[in-house]
Amino acid sequence: MEVVDPQQLGMFTEGELMSVGMDTFIHRIDSTEVIYQPRRKRAKLIGKYLMGDLLGEGSYGKVKEVLDSETLCRRAVKILKKKKLRRIPNGEANVKKEIQLLRRLRHKNVIQLVDVLYNEEKQKMYMVMEYCVCGMQEMLDSVPEKRFPVCQAHGYFCQLIDGLEYLHSQGIVHKDIKPGNLLLTTGGTLKISDLGVAEALHPFAADDTCRTSQGSPAFQPPEIANGLDTFSGFKVDIWSAGVTLYNITTGLYPFEGDNIYKLFENIGKGSYAIPGDCGPPLSDLLKGMLEYEPAKRFSIRQIRQHSWFRKKHPPAEAPVPIPPSPDTKDRWRSMTVVPYLEDLHGADEDEDLFDIEDDIIYTQDFTVPGQVPEEEASHNGQRRGLPKAVCMNGTEAAQLSTKSRAEGRAPNPARKACSASSKIRRLSACKQQ
């Protein structure tokens, strides 16, 4: 084909351009004929944790799935940006308080904090938690009735009371019990989460009196709706648990309003109706937990002794299953770290194939690490110290990083047969305790 000078094309009309061969290198194709290559998922490591896909996002930050490269346990990490926390009232204080509380709590029905990582340079905090497959609110939203069968609701409620009793025994008032803060594992274990607005009572406090509340409006008791200066913290949790039980068994809320002012007005009056299909035992329990006067409201001991709580409820309806993943529609909620794991395991070791967030990740503290002497050669063979940054567990980050890069360049065919977990650990520049 004859090559045409581009400067001469402006002298031709459209018809003349076609005659000189423009149609031979300008093609129009339908979008259905285009085959897009999927974007390669680059592996990203935060300390010893391999990052997966997004699980959810809230006002405080994002939650992603991660894999512990040492234990191969599935975890969830809450990623918090200090810049964003400053824009939220009491944001930083709530996060630090939640970390302090979770560090000393150990119960099967309370979410466990596994690790805390802090990135000084990017001003990011990573709260590594045990993995929960789904939230209770997500399960309720997945069915038209917006409720659980009585047998399933009873099982979840009993676990909620177990976890709540443990928190109260530790002198902690949750203040925000609701389905949105109750998570579930694949085995059906309920976990109380989000202790950001919780309050730890003084060890020598005479009672459970509280003065502040930041919980969700629909789950607040009349004493808070009416603006009382002080109130019983434990009875606030009992009320919120009662509203939660009402919601998961009926699909409704005892109090509603077009806006928060109308909602608080209705809560302050204390008038509500219980659907007739709840039955006398459940209705009596709800009335005891939603008692207007805090002094007359049920205690956890009274809830445990109630006939509806103690009764064994046979399954009359099919239980609400864990819904498919909202993004991938995966009904099994498979591990989202698998594509990243395959990338590390299947590809040659190259620095361009993975990302390490930083050479140094500070753990379990908000301060910069200490310094240790770096050896410097002298005339008599002895070495003197220069400062060298280290990880919180004493690992020399720069030395590990250099060693990792040197190993990656060394030709050794046997290394390709290593397991995925050992490869992740070798790529991680800074081991965590």
Rank of each mutant, 00 (worst) to 15 (best):
V4G: 06
V4R: 10
L9P: 11
G10C: 11
G10P: 08
F12L: 09
G15V: 07
L17S: 10
M18H: 11
M18E: 14
V20I: 09
T24W: 14
T32I: 04
E33V: 02
V34G: 07
I35D: 15
Y36I: 06
Q37M: 08
Q37H: 05
P38L: 04
P38R: 05
P38K: 14
R39G: 06
R39A: 07
R39M: 14
A43S: 10
L45I: 05
M51Q: 15
D53G: 03
G56Y: 00
E57I: 07
G61L: 03
K62D: 15
V63C: 11
E65N: 06
L67H: 02
L67T: 02
L67Y: 01
D68W: 05
D68Y: 00
C73Y: 02
R74C: 07
R75I: 08
K78A: 00
L80E: 11
K81Q: 04
K81D: 09
K82L: 12
K83A: 14
K83L: 02
L85T: 00
R87G: 07
P89A: 07
N90G: 15
E92N: 11
V95L: 05
K97P: 07
E98S: 12
Q100W: 03
L101V: 04
L102I: 09
L102G: 06
L105I: 14
K108A: 09
K108N: 09
K108I: 11
N109I: 01
L113S: 02
N119G: 05
N119W: 14
E121T: 07
Q123H: 07
K124W: 01
K124P: 03
K124D: 05
M125K: 06
M127E: 14
V128F: 07
E130M: 01
Y131D: 01
C132V: 03
G135P: 15
M136A: 03
M136H: 00
Q137M: 13
L140H: 00
L140Y: 00
L140N: 01
S142H: 12
P144D: 12
P144I: 04
E145Y: 07
E145P: 10
R147E: 00
F148L: 04
C151Y: 12
H154I: 02
H154Y: 09
G163Y: 00
L164S: 01
H168E: 10
S169W: 09
S169A: 07
Q170R: 08
G171A: 08
V173C: 05
I177H: 00
I177W: 00
I177R: 00
K178T: 05
P179T: 03
P179L: 02
G180R: 05
L182N: 06
T185L: 07
G187I: 15
G188P: 11
G188V: 02
L190Y: 01
K191L: 01
K191A: 07
S193F: 00
L195E: 14
V197S: 14
E199K: 08
A200V: 05
L201H: 08
L201I: 12
H202S: 08
A205Q: 10
D208G: 11
T209S: 04
R211F: 15
G215W: 01
S216L: 01
S216T: 04
S216P: 05
A218H: 04
E223L: 02
I224N: 12
G227D: 07
T230R: 11
T230F: 05
T230W: 08
F231D: 14
G233S: 12
F234A: 10
F234R: 12
K235P: 15
K235N: 04
I238S: 03
W239C: 01
S240L: 03
G242I: 00
T244P: 00
L245K: 02
Y246S: 01
N247S: 10
I248W: 04
T249N: 03
T250H: 15
P254C: 04
N259S: 10
K262H: 13
K262E: 10
E265Q: 04
I267D: 03
K269G: 12
P275N: 11
P281S: 05
D284N: 09
D284A: 03
K287E: 15
G288S: 05
M289F: 00
M289R: 00
L290E: 00
L290H: 00
E291V: 09
P294H: 05
A295V: 08
A295G: 11
A295I: 10
K296M: 10
I300P: 11
R301S: 12
Q302F: 07
H306E: 08
H313W: 06
P314G: 06
A318Q: 15
A318D: 13
P319A: 11
P323W: 06
P324A: 10
P326S: 10
D327C: 09
D327Y: 10
T328H: 13
R333K: 15
S334W: 03
M335L: 06
T336H: 14
V337Y: 05
P339A: 06
L341E: 14
E342K: 15
D343F: 10
L344Y: 05
E349S: 11
D350E: 09
D350T: 12
E351F: 08
D352E: 07
D352T: 14
L353S: 15
I356R: 08
D359S: 07
I361G: 05
Y362S: 09
T363S: 10
T363A: 04
Q364W: 04
D365V: 07
D365H: 10
F366A: 04
T367R: 10
V368R: 04
Q371H: 07
Q371E: 09
Q371F: 07
P373M: 14
E374Q: 04
A377I: 13
S378L: 04
S378T: 11
N380H: 12
N380K: 11
G381M: 14
R383W: 04
R384Y: 13
R384A: 10
G385K: 14
P387D: 14
K388T: 11
K388E: 11
A389R: 14
N393E: 12
G394C: 09
E396G: 13
A397H: 15
A398E: 14
Q399D: 11
S404D: 08
S404C: 07
S404A: 10
R405T: 09
A406N: 14
A406W: 12
G408S: 14
R409G: 09
A410C: 10
P411M: 14
P413C: 08
P413H: 15
R415N: 14
K416G: 13
K416D: 15
S419H: 15
A420V: 13
K423W: 12
K423Y: 11
R425V: 05
S428N: 04
